[in-house]
Amino acid sequence: MINIKECNEPLVNINKVCPNIIINLGKRRMKKEKTAYLRKTVAEMIWRAEKELPDGMTFIINDAWRPQYVQEEIKKWFIDRFSKKHPSWTKDKIIKEVEKYVAPSDGKNASGHMTGGAVDLRLWKNGRKIPMKSSKLTYQENAKSFQPKLSKYIQQNRETMFASLKKAGLSNYPKEYWHWSYGDIWWAKRNKKKIAIYGVIKNIS
């Protein structure tokens, strides 16, 4: 059993720690939240990881700390997506599939994003994302961190990103190549830790 012992580390504006990193949470959230936030230690890990990337390359962050309403909206979006994609699936099967990609919006097992300990990111260079997936694969196939069906070029791009983030101390969720975290309960589960140090933060103070 994993316990959460909140360390009360603050959320910080990622761009104040990592000024070169691109932040894009989507138009609606950027208008409301202006930027992205992570726990201080995690933001510093991203800064160290960026230093390991080849010259001219950085990260683009598509999600970091996430309010509860966003977590609920994401779950609904996935349910709608899989329902349309797989009309023959039962509701229970759809929910089970969605839960592989979307954590709960409350409780002990709430999304790591809601703790400020998780980040979704990809590589960025010369004003665009570096290819990390294939149009020939399904969402689920592309999402897997280790996907042998990808071209060597795309696998090399992923390895560049993975190596930098691992060296900085972050841990990957293997069903989503873009999702990395530290300190939250899902990080603790993946790494067989008895204690998680980040609990849910409901509001930016």
Rank of each mutant, 00 (worst) to 15 (best):
I197G: 05
H86T: 00
R158P: 00
E9A: 09
Q71T: 12
L137V: 03
L121F: 02
R29N: 06
W186R: 12
G26T: 09
K32N: 07
I2L: 12
N172G: 11
E73I: 04
S145A: 15
K129F: 03
E6T: 11
I94T: 08
K166E: 13
N15Y: 05
I204A: 03
Q155K: 15
N24S: 07
I22L: 10
A36S: 14
E52H: 10
Q140D: 04
K125W: 08
Q68W: 04
Y37C: 04
M1F: 12
I46Y: 05
K51E: 15
I14Y: 06
Y182H: 15
Y69G: 03
S83G: 03
N142W: 12
K31T: 06
P131A: 12
A163I: 03
V17A: 06
V98A: 08
G199M: 06
K133F: 07
N15Q: 13
Q147M: 13
K149E: 00
I130Q: 07
S105R: 10
F59G: 07
C7Y: 07
I204W: 02
K5S: 10
I195H: 04
M57A: 08
R66A: 03
I185C: 11
D63N: 15
Y37E: 02
K144T: 01
N15E: 08
R190F: 12
V98F: 09
I204N: 04
D80E: 11
E44I: 08
L53T: 07
